[in-house]
């Protein structure tokens, strides 16, 4: 099939404003959008810039706006996108070049949530054991690959970049509800602020955007409830 890719291009060193690059290519309906982008880069215009790494929906590098929706380029097939496909960088982050955005602030907010096991009790002789039920409690939020789709799709984040954003809360949730973790008080202190969970307005864009199908709004709701009830 023949598809037309309309890709938003922007090189801050040369361009005054972003512009649309149009590329007509021949492709299989079962090709992924990433394959089409690779074709453009390798055969038509080597200056096209985007992130990609594993190309199998696990590393979270190639998140972008595809036909206006936040998706991973390696996880959508051309046959589901129509003849003319618009590709833009993720919203809400600074564009470094073309589809490449600056994720530094996003990752700093992720790190601010202390996304690692915190313990205060003496170290046991063997592993810290956990029942399958306790593991199940936070299973959904372990799936996050930090692609940034949810935070980039969040109107509260667009309005105010001080909001920690859904991705950071998802990763706080992953440890808050882990029976082995003892960092509840310090994480709750970070989340119970005007720029923490309370800036979430339950808009559900994050759920719509997540390529890992994490129920992000539910996770944020559970953190709110945990703060209210003073227990996880």
């Amino acid at each position: 099939m023949q598809v037309t890719l309309k890709i938003q291009r922007y090189n801050p060193e040369k361009d005054k404003a972003p512009w649309w690059g149009e590329y007509k290519i021949e492709a299989e309906p079962t090709d992924r959008l990433l394959d089409a982008l690779n074709y453009v880069k390798w055969h038509l215009d080597g200056t096209l810039t985007y992130r990609r790494s594993c190309a199998h929906g696990i590393c979270g590098s190639d998140a972008m706006q595809i036909n206006g929706a936040n998706r991973l380029a390696c996880k959508v097939l051309l046959r589901n996108l129509g003849q003319v496909i618009t590709v833009e960088p993720l919203r809400g982050y600074k564009v470094i070049k073309d589809l490449l955005v600056d994720m530094d602030a996003f990752l700093a907010r992720y790190r601010s949530m202390k996304p690692f096991l915190i313990t205060h009790s003496p170290q046991p002789e063997k592993e810290r054991l956990q029942s399958p039920e306790d593991r199940e409690r936070f299973d959904d939020t372990t799936k996050c690959i930090l692609c940034g789709c949810c935070t980039s799709g969040c109107p509260s984040f667009w309005a105010n970049g001080e909001y920690v954003g859904p991705a950071a809360i998802v990763n706080a949730h992953r440890f808050l509800f882990d029976s082995r973790d003892e960092g509840t008080v310090e994480r709750i202190e970070l989340l119970n602020t005007v720029d923490g969970v309370w800036r979430c307005r339950t808009i559900f864009n994050c759920v719509e955007a997540c390529p890992r199908e994490i129920n992000v709004t539910r996770a944020i709701g559970e953190v709110k409830k945990a703060i209210l009830m003073q227990k996880v």
Binding site: A108, R111, E162, N192, W198
Partner: peptide
């Protein structure tokens, strides 16, 4: 880390506003 690393405890005002 900048703003992200400096928590501003709100002594629960936001929590009670949400509940209200």
């Amino acid at each position: 880390m900048g703003a992200a690393g400096s928590p501003r405890p709100e002594s629960g005002i936001e929590l009670w506003a949400w509940m209200f």
